[in-house]
Write a protein that binds this DNA or RNA. Structure first.
Length: 619
DNA sequence: GTAGGGTTAG
């Protein structure tokens, strides 16, 4: 018999509360599973004359304010009927406000609590400090800090941890540190909060120093730092920390697994990624939605689109990020139609797309030259989903139109943007000017872009290429001078190929490789073979790299060609060649790669700084 | 009541 039935079967008189039924009433409220049950009990409570009893009403408020099936509005109404609410009740309503993202109301209630002379306790401070964080209430936060001391909680670890957290949230790292330093007793949360605080705000080295002085480290604190290194793109250091963590026999849990998978993604380190994945499987770590999304991203960005799709389709529960990631993955691999199809499936499954979904869909259209589709979705996102285009959406459209040669439309769209175009939007247009040889517009945009982004060597190179293709070598020379004067270093292009776990890197025209002679012989043979298959060098991009020594044979020995020659030398017939390049693949290399894939009957997958190119049988 | 993980155009 449930306690609910027990109550309904028992007759009560509203005028004579039967006090020994309290515990049952309390239990009944706590076992409610929805609001209508709760309301029934609440009316019983009123009938029993218990509505002024804080123990009973505390339970009612707790259910309404913070439980999963509660109702904050009802909690507030009930709260207003209580003559002398105690600290528990205040705390609970404050938590309710916080859960429902009304931090200002939470702070206000805290003030009301003090005005009514109800003393805050150790449960009050974490809550109100959290509200200060979310409500961006810096001054109030400082005052609450004073209250923590004044009301006698200056050695309560949880309260102090929350103070550290609040100061970290406001980027007051010095204050956070002061609280931490003055603590007589610290727990692992104190350490982790401070360390991840430093890490989150980019002070990774301070974070490491604190970690070094920590007595015992668990996986949470290791991960706080590993994740920070990954976010700061310091992947090798993330690996170093990971090794140290394992040396201390701290077990790899799903959070660390996710961070390390991201590190693998950043490095394109597929083998290590697969190692972590197999660890996940072997140790029964649950592949939840977030972790699976990380795996999908890893496979996409390491060039294994098929594997990514397998993981994606096996996922029982997909969040919007999982869809975005997979759509973006398909886009990145030039599979525009498949990306759009997946987007349509997402809509059929009634998953609400967000702005990132549309960045990826538009990008898919751009990579695959689907101009009309792109224009359609650009309107569709606002009209159907009410998502206003942001800069990045305009950037996608400028890129899409520009690549298709619709430079005037691209420029018009850029002028119509409600926000000022940033370097990336201008960069998209400049790239299009170079592809389509529009010198006039290119010069205009290029100059603007260099002013906006003066330390990015790629911008100079792009404009220089535009000048060079127009034969304006004087302008090329002036640009190079400008770069030198400003100390802007050109980013050297290199390609890498991984063979048997060893990374082999190649610089354009480089001759210092131990097997240089062999590689160049193979490269020459390779070029000879494709020439007889119809290869004509595309010389307009000769100035892709502004280096003097590359003028001799600039195209023939671009780094990806060397990596390909090396790959052909060192792998068996039929093996896929996977090459990574730090810059964009130039048009000549693109053409050459197609022919090499045919002549040598090899699938070649080149990852450049933006996307993957698949070459198979000259396509 | 407090600490750690996912997707972002060129």
């Amino acid at each position: 018999m449930s306690s609910l039935q027990l109550f309904q079967a028992t007759p009560f008189s509203a005028t004579s509360p039967i006090t020994h039924y309290w515990p049952l009433q309390l239990q009944a409220v706590e076992s409610c599973s929805n609001m209508s049950e709760l309301k029934q009990h609440h009316s019983q409570i009123i009938k029993l004359g218990l509505s002024t009893n804080n123990d009973v009403m505390g339970r009612v408020i707790k259910f309404c304010a913070v439980s999963k099936h509660g109702d904050l509005g009802y909690a507030l109404k009930a709260f207003d009927t209580i003559p002398q609410p105690d600290a528990f009740i205040y705390n609970t309503v404050m938590r309710g406000y916080l859960h429902c993202r009304f931090p200002r109301n939470c702070i206000h209630l805290y003030i009301q609590m003090l005005e009514n002379s109800v003393l805050p306790n150790n449960f009050t401070f974490p809550c109100v400090l959290g509200a200060c964080c979310h409500g961006n209430a810096v001054e109030q936060g400082r005052q609450v800090h004073a209250h923590v001391l004044k009301f006698g909680y200056s050695s309560h670890v949880v309260c102090l941890n929350n103070l550290i957290h609040m100061y970290v949230n406001f980027e007051f790292l010095g204050e956070a540190r002061r609280v931490f330093d003055r603590m007589l007793k610290r727990d692992v949360v104190s350490w982790t909060t401070l360390i991840s605080g430093y890490a989150q705000w980019g002070c990774v080295d301070e974070a490491l120093t604190v970690l070094e002085s920590m007595p015992e480290r668990n996986s949470v604190v290791w991960n706080a730092l590993i994740a920070a290194y990954v976010q700061n793109k310091r992947f090798h250091e993330a690996f170093d920390l990971f090794d140290r963590m394992r040396a201390e026999n701290v077990v790899l849990d799903k959070f660390v697994a996710a961070s390390m998978l991201s590190a693998c993604t950043g490095l394109g380190a597929l083998e290590q990624g697969i190692w972590i994945l197999s660890y996940i499987e072997k140790n029964g770590i649950e592949l939840d939605t977030k972790l699976a999304t990380t795996v999908i991203d890893m496979y996409c960005k390491c060039g294994f689109l098929q594997k990514a799709l397998e993981v994606f389709h096996r996922l029982p529960c997909r969040g919007v990020s999982s869809w975005n990631c997979m759509i973006g993955g398909l886009a990145m691999h030039g599979k525009g139609e498949a990306a759009i199809e997946l987007f349509m499936e997402m809509e059929r499954k009634a998953v609400a797309p967000d702005n990132l979904t549309f960045v990826n869909v538009l990008n898919a259209c751009a990579h695959s030259g689907l101009v009309e589709e792109g224009q359609y979705y650009f309107q569709y996102m606002t009209e159907v989903h009410g998502i206003d285009p942001r800069r990045e959406h305009y950037g996608c459209m400028v890129n899409l139109l520009g690549r298709a040669g619709m430079l005037e439309e691209a420029r018009k769209l850029m002028d119509e943007m409600p926000m000022s175009p940033d370097a990336s939007v201008l960069g998209a247009l400049l790239g299009a000017c170079r592809i389509h040889g529009n010198i006039e517009l290119g010069e205009q945009i290029g100059k603007k872009l260099i002013d906006l982004d003066p330390n990015n060597s790629g911008r100079y190179v792009l404009l220089a290429n535009i000048y060079a293709s127009a034969g304006k070598f004087e302008d090329v020379a002036n640009l190079r001078k400008l770069m030198n004067n400003r100390g802007v270093k050109k980013c050297p292009g290199f390609s890498a190929i991984v063979l048997k776990g060893v990374v082999h890197e190649f610089l354009a025209g480089e001759e210092t490789h131990p097997q240089a002679k062999e590689i160049y012989t193979k490269a020459n043979e390779m070029l000879e073979c494709i020439r007889s298959a119809g290869y004509v060098p595309c010389t307009e991009e000769v100035l892709q790299d502004l280096e003097e020594e590359e003028k001799e044979n600039p195209l023939y020995y671009h780094s990806e060609k060397l990596a390909m020659a090396f790959g052909l030398l060192k792998t068996n017939p039929g093996e896929i060649l996977r090459i990574t390049k730090n810059l964009r693949v130039c048009r000549d290399c693109h053409q050459a790669s197609k022919l090499i894939s045919k002549v040598y009957d090899r699938e070649i997958i080149v990852r450049d700084r933006n996307r993957f190119h698949h070459f198979k049988n000259a396509l």
